[in-house]
Amino acid sequence: MSRKIERLVNLTIALLATKRFLTKSEIFRTVEGYEGTPETKERMFERDKDDLRTLGIEISLGSFDPVFQDEAGYRINSDTYQLNLGLLSPLDLSLLSLAAQCWQGAALDQAAHRVLRKLRSIGIPANELDIPAIHSKLSTSGRDIEIISSAISESSLLSFDYISKDLGSHNRTVIPFALATHLGFWYVASVDQKNQEVRIFRLDRMIGHVEKSSPQKDFEAPKDFDFYQSLSKSQSNKMAVFDVQKGKGHLIRNLAASSKDLGEWDRLEIPIVSMDNLRSLALWHGDDVLVRAPEELVEMIKTSLQEILADHE
């Protein structure tokens, strides 16, 4: 195996160092490691080219002098091979290094490690910065984030299995147009191809592989979409009324659209997005919360309590 690796490195060096295109016969003659019958060498070379491409190294094909229609040759363009981030000051480099360090132990950890090594290979000393580097705590497979981001940049179709509320899994095909985090979770906003409606998915609820397929050229992302608003604000005009004891129910207070002081209690108006969630929230808080409206929610809570009582008596 080590001979193959040596050959790949030598081939890279040779194709990178050459100023003109090298023909196959020149390569077989000069690059160490090509041995055997012409067919064997040919096969070796084809595989090596594929392998280098897998590593992200592009080999360009061209001829030395187009007028005379020479035999085609190969080279690696150093502009595409080499890192070129333009002129970087030591401060720039420090900021980029800190940026990469944000991912330690989080979603893009692996890629961040690789890029950090590359930054350290540029040969510019970094400034010491007194900025706290903290960890981002955004886990979930980095691979999904990578695939989804590149699908966004190409407007490609994505398909994946998604866990629904009842724990069934359903296959979804969407065109993603935005990716964002909220309170430690990753979300992708997309247009569902089944009904052409905007849908938001949480990445940790996707199971198995996320598949990316062909770019959709005529796709246009919805213009009036506000990701932050859709994730954080409950958009509803219908309100539930919760009485919450002073100093308690912090989670509920965060959701409230308005609050009225009742002395020992506060009366909060909560936008209704999901009745199930509100029931859950009310029950979690026990006797620190009394739900006043709507009647439907009060009935749901009473039914649940009767069942809980029957189960646990």
Binding site: G56, Q82, L83, A100, L108, A112, E146, S149
Partner: peptide, 16 residues
């Protein structure tokens, strides 16, 4: 010179 950065490395850098 270091090799060019790949898409996932660039992503880590930009989001970082």
């Amino acid at each position: 010179k270091p090799r060019n950065i790949s898409f996932d490395e660039g992503l880590a850098l930009m989001l970082g």
